[in-house]
Design a protein around this nucleic acid. Structure first.
Length: 156
DNA sequence: GCCAACGTTGGC
DNA sequence: GCCAACGTTGGC
């Protein structure tokens, strides 16, 4: 299983919206590198749902891939902000994946993510990073999940 | 193929 | 709202 991180602006679509909707097409990816990562995603892969342009920005929960990449229908919809007049139905340029919620996490603000030693190499924290879809190593994924989960006590 | 202009992302 | 970073576009 592979692990990913995907950004969304909570004013547009946040983790709680995913919980309400149960599943959703992850639309609007208009960057080739991000699209190529979408195409590598497989059913069952899990991802960290990151809130960008939020106050503060940070991690909100865990999601999973329930439908693999297929053409994003909004690229053909002239009324959509994601309309791409250069994309042809015979040769679609942009894809989406279908996602579902797994577990809401304690909100982990960006400032806290920056203190985590497991994330020093994570592209999310690189200066000037703008990529909205990126792979995570299993260690990075697990570290984020652990940071957002209730502390476990040992018996006794 | 270079590179300046432009648009978008995203933290602050 | 500002601005740094950086991907894309388009002239040449």
């Amino acid at each position: 299983m592979a692990y990913w991180l995907m950004k969304s602006e909570p004013d547009v679509f946040g983790y709680d919206d995913l919980v309400s909707n149960k599943r959703e097409g992850w639309d609007g990816i208009r960057n080739y590198q991000a699209r190529n990562f979408l195409r590598e995603m497989r059913k069952g892969d899990q991802f960290i749902f990151y809130h960008s342009n939020a106050t503060p920005p940070g991690v909100a929960g865990i999601g999973k891939i329930v439908g693999e990449a297929e053409p994003d229908p909004k690229q053909f919809d002239p009324s959509s902000k994601y309309f791409d007049p250069a994309s042809k139905p015979t040769d679609p340029r942009w894809d989406w994946v279908t996602v579902a919620p797994v577990k809401k996490l304690r909100y982990i603000p960006l400032d806290e993510l920056r203190t985590m030693p497991e994330l020093v190499d994570c592209r999310l924290l690189a200066r000037g990073n703008r990529l909205s879809v990126m792979p995570l190593t299993p260690d990075e994924f697990e570290a984020i999940v652990a940071a957002g989960s209730p502390k476990r006590r040992t018996a006794g």
